[in-house]
């Protein structure tokens, strides 16, 4: 929504002119979203991990966020978890850049309007005593769910922490034993400037420690995803979505493994589109082996007779 300056017609509204001049004209950023840092405790010990949540408040429904946070050199970000985040689809998963900035970007279809929407939970460790600032970089962007991506102005909420030697920080003593949610990967043909490459696309959610990584395996043979030994035998490769498949004929079984922050995993399966040749199954291999065995047996019998 844009605010336009009204044309002034009458002379005695000169006073109004002064008043109106104070109001910025043609401003298109009508609302502010607030990014807040939400630490678990306000007094923390040095050299021990502590948790800091990053949340968002917005009165206007926003659907896309790219946050850049300048992390001081004396702080280590040990983990950035997306557990229970309002962001369901990551454009950039949280990561630390070479210039020691924490960056993440994602979309929220349907938009989010409200308070304390959880974005990321950081596990941080201070390496030194002193005064340090986490700064929310101005090139961060928050966009409205209005079809025109109206950029929101960003306010940030300051927080004061005391780092003290010898303090025991609160540790979450309940380990995460819950696997990530079930998820359904999809095949997509990516127009890549050439013929187009087939890729598998996936996005899993974890409601506690957050998704840590993904792996993909392509296999001729179908395995039972419930059987941990079969899973362990697959050739897993670290992967990011979209993952361009090695088998562009789509005749392999595709397995995607989502791993959360505590190592629990969930395996999803995508069936091949092109029917794999009949011999590329356990049954097929056994049949071939049997046929070969009988052929050799018959042959050896023949030879044996001939020798006699």
């Amino acid at each position: 929504m844009t605010t336009r300056c009204r044309p002034i017609h009458t002379a005695y509204t000169l006073a109004l002119v002064f008043l109106l001049a104070a109001i910025p004209c043609g401003m298109s950023e009508a609302h502010a979203a607030t990014i807040a840092f939400d630490p678990q405790e306000t007094t923390v010990g040095m050299a021990q991990p502590f948790l800091v949540g990053i949340t968002i408040d917005s009165d206007v429904a926003v659907n896309t966020i790219r946050a850049i946070i300048d992390v001081p050199e004396s702080m280590d970000v040990l983990e950035a978890s997306d557990g229970n985040s309002i962001v369901n689809f990551w454009v950039e998963r949280p990561h630390i850049t070479n210039s020691h900035q924490l960056v993440f970007a994602g979309i929220i279809p349907g938009g989010f309007a409200g308070n304390k929407g959880k974005l990321i939970t950081l596990t941080v460790r201070a390496k030194k005593l002193g005064t340090f600032d986490f700064i929310f970089n101005p090139s961060s962007g928050i966009y409205a769910n209005d079809g025109s991506a109206t950029r929101q102005s960003i306010a940030s909420r300051p927080v004061r922490l005391n780092v003290v030697a010898g303090k025991e920080n609160i540790r979450n003593s309940i380990p995460d034993t819950t696997a990530p949610e079930t998820f359904v990967p999809v095949l997509a043909q990516i127009p890549d400037g050439g013929k187009g490459s087939w890729a598998v696309s996936f996005e899993a959610q974890d409601k506690s420690s957050g998704i840590s990584s993904y792996e993909v395996a392509e296999s001729f043979v179908r395995i039972d995803p419930l059987n941990t030994r079969s899973i362990a035998r697959l050739k897993w490769r670290p992967a990011r979505s979209p993952y361009i498949l090695a088998d562009q004929q789509l005749s392999s079984h595709i397995y995607i493994r989502a791993i959360d922050g505590n190592g629990n995993d969930r395996v999803a399966h995508v069936a091949p589109r092109a029917v794999p040749s009949w011999y590329r199954t356990p049954g097929g291999y056994i049949l071939i082996a049997l046929v070969l065995f009988f052929a050799l047996y018959a042959l050896s019998k023949r030879l044996h007779w001939k020798l006699e």
Partner: peptide, 25 residues
């Protein structure tokens, strides 16, 4: 200084850049 700087965060229209997380010893 913190008290003086803090309201700057709420100035409309400006994408402001105040310290957000202050750790002091």
């Amino acid at each position: 200084i913190g008290i003086i700087l803090a309201p700057q965060a709420w100035v409309r229209g400006a994408v402001s850049l105040t310290s957000n997380l202050r750790i002091t010893v």
